[in-house]
Amino acid sequence: MSTDHRRIVLFDLFGVIARHQRPGALEKMAARCHTSTEAFTTAYWIHRPPYDAGRQTASAYWTDVLHALSRPADADTVDELRLTDIDSWSRVDDRMVTYVRDLRNRARVALLSNIPADHADVFLTAQPWLHDLDHLAFSGRIGAAKPDPAAFRHCVVALRATPAEFLFVDDREENVRAARAVGMDGHVFRSQDDLGPVIDAWLPTPVERSG
């Protein structure tokens, strides 16, 4: 077990610390494919799970999306879509970033995100503060995506802890239910203002030292 016995707050990334996909991004990629936004969105998400979980390369994913739309999967189109997609998931909530960084004074802080490996590489370069966290679990690197129990168990093993030492914070209820099923506490994120009191109540009260 770890010698650091502080409790662990395990954060989701998108919809909690980072913003959801940039508005208009799917429409932009659909236009590049000369197809409707509805058809593109369906193909984009149906083929996403293996890419998120690291079982498929970016090139293979975009080839599948384009073939589903009956479009040619030439290298230039694939690369343009890949880069547009990465950029569409690049925004963070600066207020939440500050909160998460400050929280490390009171708890261990880790991240569990459904994100393809190539997206993660770019995100890490743009957001170097992530390297200060106690653990980063990106689905495309660990081979498991939420709500798969294996994603949560990876974090338990990596942090040499027990599930009961974790509070998992995610904006999707199905992911929070999955975390609870493996023994973690869980909180469905709605806002930082709602989250703060939950974490304050969950973390043990510091013991004051006598002078």
Results as ranks from 00 to 15, higher is better:
Leu10Phe: 07
Leu10Asp: 03
Phe11Cys: 09
Leu13Cys: 10
Leu13Phe: 13
Phe14Tyr: 15
Phe14Pro: 04
Gly15Asp: 00
Gly15Ile: 05
Gly15Glu: 02
Gly15Val: 06
Val16His: 05
Val16Glu: 04
Ile17Val: 15
Ile17Met: 10
His20Cys: 11
Arg22Thr: 15
Arg22Lys: 15
Ala25Glu: 09
Ala25His: 02
Ala25Met: 05
Leu26Ser: 10
Leu26Ala: 13
Leu26Gly: 06
Glu27Lys: 14
Glu27Ser: 15
Glu27Tyr: 12
Glu27Pro: 05
Glu27Ile: 02
Lys28Leu: 05
Met29Tyr: 10
Met29Thr: 01
Ala30Gly: 05
Ala30Arg: 00
Ala31Asp: 14
Ala31Trp: 00
Ala31Thr: 01
Ala31Asn: 07
Ala31Leu: 11
Ala31Val: 04
Arg32Phe: 04
Arg32Met: 15
Cys33Leu: 11
His34Arg: 08
Thr35Gly: 03
Phe40Thr: 07
Ala43Val: 08
Ala43Leu: 03
Ala43Met: 02
Tyr44Val: 03
Trp45Glu: 13
Trp45Pro: 00
Ile46Leu: 15
His47Asp: 09
Pro49Gln: 11
Pro50Tyr: 10
Tyr51Leu: 03
Tyr51Pro: 03
Tyr51Val: 04
Asp52Gln: 12
Asp52Gly: 08
Asp52Glu: 14
Ala53Glu: 06
Gly54Phe: 06
Gly54Ile: 04
Arg55Leu: 14
Gln56Glu: 05
Ala58Val: 02
Ala58Gln: 00
Ser59Ala: 12
Ser59Pro: 06
Ala60Arg: 12
Tyr61His: 01
Tyr61Arg: 01
Trp62Ser: 01
Thr63Gln: 15
Asp64Glu: 14
Asp64Tyr: 04
Val65His: 07
Val65Trp: 03
Val65Arg: 05
His67Asp: 14
His67Ala: 14
Ala68Gln: 01
Ala68Asp: 14
Leu69Pro: 04
Arg71Thr: 07
Arg71Cys: 00
Arg71Ile: 09
Arg71Gln: 10
Arg71Gly: 04
Pro72Arg: 10
Ala73Glu: 08
Ala73Gln: 11
Asp74Val: 06
Asp74Ser: 12
Asp74Thr: 10
Ala75Gly: 06
Ala75Met: 12
Ala75Ile: 14
Thr77Leu: 13
Val78His: 02
Val78Asp: 02
Asp79Met: 13
Asp79Ala: 13
Asp79Gly: 04
Asp79Pro: 02
Glu80His: 13
Leu81Pro: 06
Leu81Ala: 03
Arg82Lys: 09
Asp85Lys: 06
Asp85Gly: 05
Asp85Tyr: 09
Asp85Gln: 10
Asp85Ile: 02
Ile86Arg: 08
Ile86Asn: 08
